[in-house]
Design a binder for these strands. Sequence first.
DNA 1: GAGCATTGCGCAATGT
DNA 2: CACATTGCGCAATGCT
Lengths: 207, 207
Amino acid sequence: MMSEPRVSSVIQEWVFTGQAAPHPHHHHHPLDSASHAGSSEQVPQVPQVSQVDMMSYGQPQALPRLGADDQLMGLSYLPFTTSCLGNSAAMGLAHQHQGHPNDQQEFSSFLLPPLRSSSASKRSINKDSAEYRQRRERNNIAVRKSRDKARRRVLLTQQRAQQLQDENHKLQMRIGQLTQERDTLKHILSQRHLQAAEDAAAEEAGL
Amino acid sequence: MMSEPRVSSVIQEWVFTGQAAPHPHHHHHPLDSASHAGSSEQVPQVPQVSQVDMMSYGQPQALPRLGADDQLMGLSYLPFTTSCLGNSAAMGLAHQHQGHPNDQQEFSSFLLPPLRSSSASKRSINKDSAEYRQRRERNNIAVRKSRDKARRRVLLTQQRAQQLQDENHKLQMRIGQLTQERDTLKHILSQRHLQAAEDAAAEEAGL
DNA sequence: GAGCATTGCGCAATGT
DNA sequence: CACATTGCGCAATGCT
């Protein structure tokens, strides 16, 4: 429940001078609105300045794919996605992380190599495994559903805002109307008061 | 400007009568590597609809479907993602469409197949190309930026809604207050009226 | 036509 | 263990 908790662990940072961080992977969280960014932890990359609202979404840098590095500007998400290489088959047997068709670098492969074992409880996630595919498919469905829900939620919020705004206008009008009525009544009453005073004066004079 | 026009092409849903069932268990995995090529007419895929708002997020392929019926519903997302395969190296040289590490099917290939051919002006998008990487990186940045913006926008909308709701409450209170004031004044006036009438009567009687 | 902006999607990590 | 969320990159497409 709650739909907002996005604050939790803060395990991230770090730098990894050259050695393998045991950590499996990346992932950061959003820290609320802007902030973070992709940090992929793995390569010496600059933390990047968060994306405030101006610029700094990281700049493309020419990725060298292998040797030459490049410049170091400030933010930048060093993608150097070289290529994933890693073909499912090869990967499957070869390593644990599999080839990641999608994420190009998933550097993680070399980042978290320490794991794996012969037993390979989970490590070798054969990409070809029927079980793997099944899980992926289930997740894909869940993802679509979740996003659909999110979209719907956003839409509802927008509609609610619009509706509230409209209602607000009506209420403002009503307030204007009531204010006027009240003031009119006040005015009338004050007139009566005057009238009464005058009458009283007249009567007194008449006495 | 306009930031909302998402109404344009309508090329989306469709069915694709054919069958090519995704066989859930077609054990032979995903076409994996070798796959499409210039023509790539292998798997039929549906683009998907999403955003409707009901259910059916696609069924995981567990359906042995024999006939084609599902399409009626409208939304099943037929995934049969076979597999992504696609290794950059192999792909790069091998074909133009490359393996799409990520999108597994990129059905588009058969969706808009008419193109492609020997000329291959851009067709062969070498995944390894520096130019390709550069474009990808730029797009990644744009995507991050765009999503950040979207997130921020959603947040603002939520805040605005909350704010409007609060203001609404205040206005309601104000209305209650004004209504009361008005009624009180009305009451006082009516009393005055009575008073005046009585006075008049008394005076008349006194005459 | 170039280039950024949006969007749907699948993947993987992580939360529940 | 299953499902829900979420950041991320890819590719298609929209909009300059």
